[in-house]
Each structure stands twice: as C-alpha cells, then as structure tokens.
Design a protein around this nucleic acid. Structure first.
Lengths: 198, 198
DNA sequence: CCGCATACTGTATGAACATACAGTTACGCA
DNA sequence: TGCGTAACTGTATGTTCATACAGTATGCGG
C-alpha cells in the first residue's frame, strides 16, 4: 500500500527525506509548496494526505512540521515499566529501534527489554529484547506479556481446564496460578539479542 | 566554548537530542517547557539562547522547531566552484560531511574537493577533500586556497621580498607570480581521502 | 459520457510557535 | 555589599503553520 505512489507523490516523499537530512526537521506545507512552485500550500497538504493514506508517512495533527517517515519509525523500546503506568507510556520508552515490524508474524508492535532469568529455558535471557504483538488473546502454550496487578511479566501461558497458569521456563521459578485479575498485554513474536549480551 | 555548559543546559541539550530521535524533529519551546515542568516557555527560550551562544545549537529564526544540533551539522563540501560565485554559495555545495570542525587546528570551516595534480608533491591528490580554515591571512610557506580572478586554486604561498608567488608542488607546473588581485580564501588545515581514492 | 482520482489555485481561520519585555530568586565573584 | 549570571514566572504580540472549504483542469476506467 505504501508502494503504489504516483510519480508526483514520490517526488514529494523524496523532498521530505531530503529536507529531513539537510534541515534536520521535516518541511512545512509552505516549504513544500515553495520547493515545487505551488501557488497554494493546500497542494502540499493534499499530497501529504495522500501519502499518509497510502502509509508512507504519518501526520502528527496540528503539530508544526509534524511529518514522520514511516520507513524510519521503528519500534518503541520499552524498558522497566513504572507501576500503574500503561506499558506504552512515554516514560517507559527507552527509545526506538529501527526495525520493520513485519519482520515478525504476527506483526510486532513494540520491543520489551526482558529483566530476570525466569525464561532462560526458552532461550530468553536477561537483557534480551522481546518483540511483542499487542493483543489480549492468547492460546495455551504461547509466551505472553502479562500484567498481574502492577507487575508486568513474561511467561508461558497454560490453561489446565478452568485453571490458568503463568509458567516460567526455569526450574528455580514456580508456576504462578492466576487468581486475581490477569491482563494479557501481548504475545511474544520474536527476540532480538544485542551483540554485547551474547 | 561549546563544552562549558551548565548541568541544566546539558539536560536541555539531551532532551533536544532525544526528541530528535524519538519524534524525528526538534522540540518546540512549549515541548521543552512541558518536559521540564517549566510554567513559562520563556525559560526554554532562554536556555536555547544560552545553548546557541555557547555554540551547541544553531537557531533558525522564526522557524517552528528551528533548532539544529551543531554536532550533527558537519562541514559543507565544496565541489567545483562556479565562475564568479562565492566559494561557499549553495550551488557549489555538494553536501555536508559529518565531521567535527575541531578535528583540525585551526578549526576547519569547509571541505574543498581538490581537482588536478598540481599539489601531488605535498601529498594532495586529485579528488582529495581539503579541510580549509576560512581566513584572508596566511604566512609564506603555507598552503592556501586562493582566488585569482574567477579561478579558485590550491597552492603554496611564497613571499620573496615584495613578490608573491603561488607555487605548485609538482615539477610539471610553473610557479604563478601574482600580478593581479589575489584573494586568499582560506588556509589548508587538513586532508581527507576517501577509501576508494586510495 | 459520467464519475472519480490526481493535481492543482485561491481564500480563510484558528491554533501552534517563536520571541520580546518586565520581574523574581539564588549563587558565586570581586 | 554589590554585580553579573543562571534559572526561572508571567504576560504579550505577531507570525508561522496546519488545515478546512470551494473551485478548476486533466486523464482514466466503466
């Protein structure tokens, strides 16, 4: 969907890329119009809308120079999660990792930096980046990101009849039998290990 | 001058860096004020002015999000110089090279792509990028970028009494005795050779 | 030939932004 | 003790920007 751009739209996209490199910030509508000789900056606005609809850019509403190239968007990297805050809250984000979400299946929505050794048996080590697909549904046997009260944890989900367990992949950790409210935040769909952690 | 920042100014600079990475564009004054809890965005404005005065950033006047980090500014790369145009005119710039100007001493102001073999004896080959410090003063024996009428040339400056010569470092080229107007554009302070030219 | 998409001109409006000026408080320096 | 600088609050102003609406011209698929 992001590939079927018209020649003109491709030119606009290239101009945005170029402005980003030369100026260090995305262009305004007026700058686009100026560069292409448009008499009306609305022409630029409509090109941007078309590019946004086709998924090439994301527009930040009412923000000056609020144009973002999807190609350099990457995935948000979530570090330790502050108690009570939504997983994807800005204060939990360590930054962004340049990575195509489609590399995983289903699509990864964010990366979670794993803490602890409870999943070493599944090859998930301390410090690894876990690619997570945001969903509330998971089947038994899948590795999930779950929230137990204020705690966010990565475990394997087990349904035994009506009983739900979160099982660690490490003999040192006992399975957690879910009693209270269990919120599944997402499904593990991949893993990234930094060279220095090998 | 860009290093003697106060702790607070360093925090602001870090926030700009972070915003640039996370958002893809520099922050506005309001965003800075919001992030630091300032009640007045003028506090942000003054920090930006201080950072600009100390050379850490460059402010683009009246431009939304017009903050540029000097550290990622790089040096302009000058290619062939169009007759009659100022050396640093935009049409002569091939781009920018990510390089700390302080790498050279005195500080390099731009890079000039050398054409021809007149300075091979000094180890300056065709295609090399010559780091140039912008100045009009040079001592005898120094390698300078000089303008002779419409021509821009790189040669070694020689003063013999009242006579001024521009000497090539290649036996195939005869020294130029300066008669007409000589404008010294700059002083060679370093050299960069691209791997493919080795 | 009609409808629809692309690619614009021209105009308008309100919110976002940069930026100046007048103060205040605290701290180090001479 | 007084002065300069850093780090703010509070207010104000005008421009920059995003963005909507009403048109026009062209080409393409049905």
């Amino acid at each position: 969907m992001a590939d079927d751009l018209t020649p003109r739209q491709r030119e606009i996209l290239d101009f945005i890329r170029n402005t980003l490199e030369v100026l260090g910030a995305p262009p305004t509508r007026a700058e686009i119009a100026g560069a292409f000789g448009f008499a009306s900056h609305n022409a630029a606005e409509e090109h941007l809308k078309a590019l946004a609809k086709k998924g090439a850019i994301v527009l930040d509403p009412r923000s000056a120079r609020g144009i973002r190239l999807v190609e350099q968007l990457g995935l948000p990297l979530i570090g330790s999660v502050a108690a009570g805050s939504p997983l994807l809250a800005v204060e939990n984000q360590l930054g962004r990792v340049q990575l195509a979400p489609q590399l995983f299946s289903p699509r990864a929505d964010y990366l979670l930096q794993v803490r602890g050794n409870s999943m070493t048996g599944a090859g998930i080590l301390d410090g690894d980046l876990l690619a997570v697909h945001k969903t509330t549904e998971a089947r038994s046997g899948q590795i999930v990101v779950a929230r137990l009260g204020d705690e966010v944890t990565v475990k394997r989900l087990r349904r035994r009849g009506s009983r739900i367990e979160l099982v660690a992949e490490n003999p040192d950790y006992a399975p957690i039998v879910v009693a209270g409210p269990l919120a599944i935040e997402g499904l593990a769909v991949g893993l990234i290990r930094n060279g220095s952690a090998l």
